[in-house]
Design a protein around this nucleic acid. Structure first.
Lengths: 122, 122
DNA sequence: TCTCATCTACGAAATATTTCGTACAAAAAA
DNA sequence: TTTTTTGTACGAAATATTTCGTAGATGAGA
């Protein structure tokens, strides 16, 4: 399941904040760009129909929760992205990403450790 | 300039093959999925108007060429992708990419060298 | 010359995505 | 109780993207 750009924006808020009402999401989105309440509502209803979100209808204002994990979504999107933008070459993508040196030394160390792990497997 | 998915598909062919006619592109695209000739033509005309492609009109069938480099396009797309899918964390993306995809030992070595380079800069 | 195949241009349909207005229910405030 | 606020549902407009049909030009071959 590939979320659209707007859907991903909503998922990001839910992954960071946990369960939210439409109003809460809308307020977070509105920090960055202008967006009407019913726009956000409609999007979340669609996402609910698609199974991207679950919701509790007990209170008058429903509480929504992400029904896909951040990790799994990132993997899905990444796979597609590697294919379409980097012709399937994950290492090329990695080089590019590291090339824009925005990573801290600690992060670089973590990557190095991961490399060690991978190379030590037979 | 962010190319759409279809536009990126066409750019990929041009980056691999060099200058092409619409027919050549269409044949390459048709290897993977069904797509009409005029569909490809129209897309390439739009890309020309946007400045994504240049073209030689000397022959009856125009010869198109990419007007944006693969590298620069990858950087643009990557930056956006890191932000939307990985909240701006390039290192998280790298970890995912290395974890999910199989890279050859040679590629992993290259990455390691790049890490060395980055860390040795003051 | 007279088809026939192939090309461009371009309008418009088809599809996908995003945005919003309106109707109506229910809680909260006056 | 009456009014105001806040919520859902949902149709449909607005926008973006993709697809295709048709018209007309041009060159190749009969």
């Amino acid at each position: 399941m590939k979320p659209t750009d707007s859907e991903l924006e909503i998922l990001q808020v839910l992954w960071q904040e946990g369960p939210c009402t439409v109003r809460q999401i809308n307020e977070r989105l509105a920090e960055n760009r202008e967006v009407g309440y019913t726009t956000t509502l409609k999007l979340m209803q669609i996402m609910y129909e698609k199974g991207l979100l679950t919701r509790l209808e007990e209170a008058r204002s429903h509480v929504y929760e992400a029904n896909v994990s951040e990790e799994e979504t990132q993997s899905t999107l990444l796979e597609r992205f590697v294919d379409t933008a980097f012709r399937g070459s994950a290492s090329k993508l990695v080089m590019h990403a590291l090339g824009n040196h925005k990573s801290t030394p600690a992060e670089l160390d973590e990557i190095r450790k991961l490399l060690d792990q991978i190379e030590q497997q037979p």
